[in-house]
């Protein structure tokens, strides 16, 4: 092959408009899923801290299940498996958002649990000793401090989830990798196109990292 490993810049540039059409899907699945995952994470993270066993046990089971199985299997199960159960097809976009929500929710639960547990128990005792109820103590004393500490690991999870959406090309949702595959099927420029795809992911994740670091510098995050 006389093309060898020469990088065809023109082919790379030509692919950009088509690939960009995948970005909205990648962002929608990532951030839609993460938004839901955040609420799941708060709920199950707090349940996993409950002293009441019947509340704690289901939360722990959920967390272990979704952390312990591959997200690819989870999305295949939702997209191909669940329709048998619900008696109708599930839209690929919905399946993708659901998979990110359930998967990130499990990891975020652990972030929430760790954040809350990292707060010194003297803080809780001080709140209670002042006459605050347990829920007031949690809301006004423990949670604001825990949340600050949770922001860096939450940012980390957001980056992981954005990259995880690339797996959803297998269910045909038109996200970034899927767009790349479709484009390559007609041009056979895999080397150039996957390079552009990789750069596009990098732009999204680096922007997010930059945003988080700015927050941290402004002192909104940390101890």
């Amino acid at each position: 092959m006389d093309r060898g490993f020469d990088f065809d810049w023109q082919a790379a540039i030509d692919s950009i408009p088509f690939l960009l059409r995948g970005i909205p899907y990648t962002l929608l699945i990532s951030f839609g899923g993460l938004a839901i995952g955040f609420f799941i994470g708060i709920l199950f993270g707090l349940l996993s801290l409950s002293p009441i066993r019947p509340l704690r046990w289901p939360a722990v089971a959920y967390i272990e299940f979704f952390r312990g199985t591959p997200i690819l299997v989870q999305v295949l199960f939702i997209y191909y498996g669940l329709p048998d159960l619900v008696g109708g097809p599930i839209n690929a976009l919905t399946a993708g958002i659901a998979a990110i929500a359930l998967n990130s929710g499990a990891y975020i639960s652990e972030v929430v649990r760790g954040g809350v547990q990292s707060i010194d128990k003297g803080q809780r005792e001080a709140g209670l000793s002042l006459g605050l109820t347990r829920s007031q103590t949690f809301l006004h004393v423990v949670w604001p401090q825990a949340f600050k500490r949770m922001i860096p690991p939450l940012g980390n999870q957001a980056i992981v989830s954005i990259k995880d959406t690339s797996l959803f090309s297998v269910i045909g949702v038109g996200e970034l990798v899927r767009q790349g595959q479709v484009y390559i099927a007609t041009t056979f420029t895999a080397f150039e196109v996957y390079f552009v795809v990789a750069v596009m992911y990098l732009i999204v994740t680096l922007s997010l990292s930059y945003l988080l670091r700015t927050l941290e510098r402004r002192g909104l995050v940390g101890a």
Partner: peptide, 20 residues
Amino acid sequence: LRAIRKEVGMVFQQFNLFPH
């Protein structure tokens, strides 16, 4: 317990002020 805590103040060895 609630009533007691409303009228009993406590000062701790480690201060336990709310840092935020």
